[in-house]
Design a protein around this nucleic acid. Structure first.
Lengths: 187, 187
DNA sequence: ACCTGAACACCGTTCAAGT
DNA sequence: ACCTGAACACCGTTCAAGT
């Protein structure tokens, strides 16, 4: 909540209002929501949105960072508990559910992963590294094929999330496809 | 090539020119290419494009139908040859490679599969049915998990194609992810 | 019959003018 | 220091006017 420190009072208010409205609009319309619409509904000029968030990615970043960090923390805590395979599967399921929060999120996830210049790249790779530790533990226990790495896992989870988005029965398809994948990665 | 029968000579020429140009532009820019750009480069008014192809889907349909039908025929011929598992894998690989022709094609494939009103729906489900026959043969031989169906397979192949599109090393990632999937579907 | 392109309602992005 | 909204260059889509 300190992200807006040092701003003039009106700027601070605008920043927070934009973020709150963006969350709602992007929930409704997906990551491709109209920026004009967000500014309009926030009661703010379009230039003000651009001043606070110079790119669409910067806006998404502000919305997503918390979730990324939460997933990384979750991986850490799972590392200290439960059977290796069960812990990995629980985390993968959490990650997969996380990709359903906004339409278009699986695409943002992979974009962030591949783009080192993205403001979210660090947060994203930290999460991936945390997941990779869970993965290695399961591999060492002989539960998961040993050649799988964190990028494979991320891309597969994102792919499943994306495919589910395209279906009229998203939730159902996501569970089905994820189960097919995770079953198949067992060794 | 009979699709344009019964048109006035100039209309016939425009139709063919639009299709040829659309193929090039969509190869360059993906399925979301600017329709204005296509019309412009075809030397034709924008209204003429809309007259021949009332929706973007109609244009894509004309570009894709041939490939769909070829894949269906390929499935038929593989059904009469080779080991069940090898035949299925060969077809899946062909399908997967097919999704790389245009950027955005995996999305169009799933849209077509799920939208019964799409002009390509029939062609798409015919292809899926042909693939499903290959799948069942491999399942009867005990080579593939028995609960998998054609929709699962389509969605997984499209998902892999999409994830590969998001990567800077598309070809490499497509092969890797497809191998992970197909390995995992063995029984 | 068919073609054309202006017109309309939207975008994202920039920036001069205001406070 | 920050905000505003007009301006610009694009979209997709429609349709009156032409041939």
């Amino acid at each position: 909540m300190n992200e807006a420190r040092g701003l003039r009072a009106d700027a601070q208010r605008n920043y927070e209002q934009l973020l709150a409205v963006a969350r709602v609009v992007i929930e409704e319309q997906g990551t491709q929501a109209s920026l004009r619409d967000i500014a309009r509904r926030a009661g703010v000029g379009l230039g003000t949105l651009y001043r606070h968030f110079p790119t669409r990615d910067a806006l998404l970043e502000a919305l997503l960072r918390q979730g990324f960090d939460r997933l990384a923390a979750s991986a850490e805590s799972l590392l200290a508990s439960a059977a290796p395979k069960a812990a990995l599967l629980a985390w993968v399921d959490e990650l997969s559910r996380g990709t359903t929060v906004y339409h278009g999120l699986p695409a943002s996830l992979l974009a962030t992963l591949h783009d080192e210049a993205s403001p979210l790249h660090l947060s994203c790779t930290a999460m991936r590294a945390a997941g990779e530790r869970l993965l290695r533990r399961a591999q060492d226990a002989g539960d998961v094929r040993p050649d799988l790495d964190g990028v494979d896992l991320f891309e597969l989870v994102a792919a499943v999330g994306w495919a589910a988005e395209q279906s009229p029965r998203s939730a159902e398809r996501r569970e089905r496809l994820l189960a097919l994948i995770t079953d198949g990665l067992a060794s």
